[in-house]
C-alpha cells in the first residue's frame, strides 16, 4: 500500500514539530525516518498512525484520505518505543488482542485466533512463551511480542517508533537482521523512526532525513550517504570533518588545493566543506593540502585512526597505510580525496 502525507504542519504550543512535510512510502517499501531528537520524525509517524492529528495537511492510504480517521480505523500496526505491552495479559492474549476486539461479525473463531497466535509466536521465534507475562520476558523478547501483536491484525502498513531504542547493542544488531527478514517475507509497507544512522542505512530501502520539522533528503542509503543533498545531511550522516572553504566555478578551494565538488553544484562564494575521515591521504609536511599536527595515533585493527589538530580544532583521519615513524607532535599534511561543499 502507498502511504502519502501532503504538506503536514503540526505545532505544539510555540514549537513547530512539522513544517510542511510531503512524503510517499511506496508499496512494500521499508522506509526509515532519520533525524536528531526534536526533528519531528516521531510526530510524523504518529500522524501517519492517527495517534496525533496535524494542524493542516492530509494523510492518504492508497489515495484514500485518512486525515480524520482515528488510529483504530486505519488498519495499521504500530510498535511503540517502550512496547506498551498489556502487562495484565499473557503474551498470547497480547497478540490476540487486536483480533478479539473486532466486532462479532468480523471476529475470527476462537480456534482461528489461537492458530494465528501460534503462527505469530513461531514467526517471532518465541514458540513456547505464549503463557508468560510481559514482566517475565527480556527486552528483546518484549520487542518481538510487540511486533507480533502489531502483525496479528494483518496491517496494511507497519509503523515502528524507535523499535530498537531500548535494547543493548548486541541484541539490537540481531533483531535488526531478523526484522528485515520478517519484512522481506511479509512485504507490508513499513515505516520506522530512528536516530541511529547506522540502523537506518543498514535496514531501510530509502531513508528520509529530517531536521527541524522539515525533510532534508529522501533517497536510498547509498545516495544519502555518498551524495548528501544538504550540509545538514552530510554532517549528520557519517562522522565528517568540517572546514571553511571557498566555492568557485564548481570547484572547492581548500588548503591551497582546488578540488571537484562531490556535492550538488552550488554558486560561488564562501562555503563549508565536509571530508570524511577515510577520505584523506596523509602526506609529509609542506606538501599542498591542509597543514596539521598529529596528536595521537590509535591502531584499531586494520585501520589507524589519526587524531590531528588543525588551527586549534581536532580533525580525524583514518588510513590503512599511515606513514611510518610518525609520533605525536609531528607536522603532516592532510590531502582530501573527496570533498563535499555547500554554501555557508
Amino acid at each position: 500500500m502507498t502511504v502519502e502525507t501532503h504538506d503536514l504542519v503540526k505545532r505544539f504550543g510555540g514549537f513547530a514539530a512539522l513544517e510542511g512535510v510531503t512524503l510517499q512510502a511506496r508499496p512494500g517499501e521499508f522506509l526509515a525516518l532519520l533525524g536528531p531528537s526534536g526533528s519531528g520524525k516521531t510526530t510524523l509517524l504518529r500522524i501517519m498512525a492517527g495517534l496525533d492529528f496535524p494542524d493542516s495537511g492530509r494523510v492518504t492510504f492508497d489515495g484514500v484520505d485518512m486525515s480524520d480517521r482515528p488510529a483504530r480505523e486505519r488498519g495499521i500496526g504500530f510498535v511503540f518505543q517502550h512496547y506498551a505491552l498489556f502487562r495484565h495479559m499473557s503474551v498470547a492474549d497480547n497478540i490476540a488482542f487486536g483480533l478479539t476486539v473486532r466486532p462479532r461479525r468480523d471476529r475470527p473463531a476462537a480456534s482461528a485466533i489461537a492458530a494465528r497466535v501460534k503462527e505469530l509466536l513461531d514467526l517471532v521465534q518465541l514458540p513456547d512463551l505464549g503463557k508468560r507475562y510481559p514482566a517475565q520476558l527480556s527486552g528483546g523478547q518484549r520487542q518481538r511480542v510487540a511486533l507480533a501483536r502489531a502483525l496479528a491484525v494483518e496491517p496494511r502498513v507497519l509503523l515502528l517508533d524507535e523499535p530498537f531504542g531500548a535494547l543493548d547493542a548486541k541484541v539490537r544488531k540481531d533483531l535488526r537482521r531478523w526484522l528485515r527478514a520478517v519484512h522481506d517475507a511479509s512485504h507490508v509497507t513499513s515505516v520506522f523512526v530512528t536516530h541511529d544512522q547506522e540502523e537506518a542505512l543498514d535496514l531501510a530501502d530509502r531513508v528520509v532525513v529530517m531536521n527541524k520539522g522539515r525533510i532534508e533528503q529522501v533517497d536510498t542509503p547509498d545516495a544519502v550517504y555518498n551524495r548528501p543533498a544538504t550540509a545538514f545531511v552530510c554532517d549528520f550522516l557519517g562522522n565528517a570533518n568540517r572546514f571553511e572553504c571557498a566555492l568557485r566555478g564548481g570547484g572547492v578551494e581548500i588548503g591551497g588545493l582546488t578540488l571537484p565538488n562531490a556535492a550538488p553544484p552550488a554558486g560561488d562564494g564562501r562555503g563549508q566543506a565536509f571530508v570524511r575521515p577515510h577520505e584523506f591521504d596523509i602526506a609529509a609536511a609542506g606538501q599542498p593540502g591542509i597543514a596539521a599536527t598529529l596528536r595521537r595515533v590509535a591502531h584499531t585493527g586494520a585501520l589507524a585512526a589519526l587524531e590531528c589538530e588543525v588551527e586549534g580544532r581536532i580533525v580525524e583521519a583514518t588510513s590503512a597505510r599511515p606513514p611510518e615513524g610518525l609520533t605525536p607532535g609531528d607536522a603532516l599534511t592532510l590531502v582530501p580525496t573527496t570533498v563535499r561543499a555547500y554554501p555557508a
Binding site: P70, A71, I76, H82, A84, G98, V101, R149, A152, V153
Partner: peptide, 11 residues
C-alpha cells in the same frame, strides 16, 4: 501508550 496501542489494534 497502552491506550494508544489498544486503539492502533482496532479497539
Amino acid at each position: 501508550e497502552v491506550e494508544e496501542a489498544a486503539a492502533s489494534l482496532g479497539a
